[in-house]
């Protein structure tokens, strides 16, 4: 484990009993979020990205979800903590930005009240001090008139403004980790760019490590330092950003890249078929049915992680331990 790791996730599995079956949303996920770095988590919708985020925040606890594995922050696993201690970590050590800013704010409270409520929950401070801090933080995410925004109600604000406010609230406690679940999906492209660039520059100022979740490879390529590709609750491939985009190893990653609009190419290549349903996933590779590179070895493969280059992890039969032969093929 690296010393600068802000959050360390070990073998995290999340499942929900549904009727007689078991919905396996996250399967044996491991990664680190490093301080001042952005880890990009990419995958189709419904692949378990949002559940992973909630699990990292400890927000799935006690709702029938079964959670295994460890999420360490500051040396302690959040699942070993008492509910109350976990609550104090949330918002302070680990903050979250929600997908849809328009519905994330309580319609009956002003933006300022959201700020004050969050700050006062974690530190002793007067409402006046909280407002001062809020104005400073809002200015940093590019809000033109922070004091006025604080007095507004959510229904009076645009999605971009609300997302900025959400980022400002999240960062005002200088958290070790910021989990951003599709932070710009519901926004205009121009605003998306502004917000992302603020996020990128602020991680250094606040010393925060960011988990950036997105289904958009472009956003990930531009923002992330390291990328994890998720499919059916598995992280099928994980590597530093340049390595991943230069040498995508997993057939799913390659298919994902091929299906992305690019300047040079005229036709997109969609991925055939649909992801299998998440309930009663067997231990076999969930991409087998859609994969163009199926081999005989796939039948015996049980999603053990393999390494195809230093720091480049893949879960595919081709790279399973003892099959380094293919490495040369790639090079």
């Amino acid at each position: 484990m690296n010393d600068d790791a802000a959050m360390n996730v070990q073998n995290l599995s999340v499942s929900l009993p549904v009727g007689p079956g078991l919905l396996r949303a996250v399967n044996g996920v491991s990664f680190q979020i490093r301080r001042q770095k952005i880890l990009g988590l990419v995958g189709e919708s419904g692949c378990g990205k949002s559940v992973t985020c909630l699990a990292l925040m400890g927000l799935l606890k006690g709702r029938g979800w079964q959670i295994e594995g460890a999420v360490d922050i500051g040396g302690a696993c959040i699942y070993a903590l008492a509910q109350e201690d976990l609550r104090q970590l949330r918002g302070k050590e680990m903050a979250m930005i929600m997908q849809n800013p328009m519905s994330a704010f309580n319609p009956l409270l002003t933006i300022g009240q959201h700020f004050i409520e969050t700050l006062q929950n974690h530190c002793r401070m007067t409402a006046g001090e909280a407002v001062e801090l809020a104005i400073a933080n809002l200015a940093r995410v590019g809000v033109p008139q922070p004091a006025r925004l604080l007095q507004r109600y959510p229904f009076q604000c645009s999605g971009g403004m609300l997302q900025r406010a959400m980022i400002a609230i999240a960062l005002s406690m200088r958290p070790a980790v910021l989990i951003a679940d599709e932070p710009t999906t519901s926004l205009d492209v121009t605003i998306q760019y502004q917000i992302l660039s603020h996020l990128a520059s602020l991680r250094e100022h606040y010393q925060t490590g960011i988990l950036l979740v997105s289904h958009d490879l472009g956003v990930i390529a531009q923002m992330a330092d390291e990328v994890a590709v998720m499919y059916c609750g598995y992280i099928v491939e994980q590597a530093p950003v340049d390595e991943l985009f230069d040498h995508p190893a997993h057939p799913y990653t390659r298919a994902l890249m091929a299906s992305r609009p690019q300047m040079q190419r005229k036709r997109l290549r969609p991925i055939d078929g649909q992801p299998p349903p998440l309930w009663n996933l067997k231990d076999r590779c969930p991409f087998e049915d859609r994969c163009h590179e199926v081999a005989d070895s796939c039948g015996d493969y049980r999603m053990e992680p393999g390494i195809c280059a230093p720091g480049h992890q893949v879960r595919c039969a081709k790279y399973a331990t003892g099959q380094e032969v293919i490495l040369s093929e790639l090079a």
Partner: peptide, 16 residues
């Protein structure tokens, strides 16, 4: 509602 989840994510006291 999302805003309830968000309130919990901000670590707001359960009673609040």
């Amino acid at each position: 509602q999302t805003f309830v989840l968000y309130a919990r994510a901000r670590g707001i006291r359960e009673r609040l």
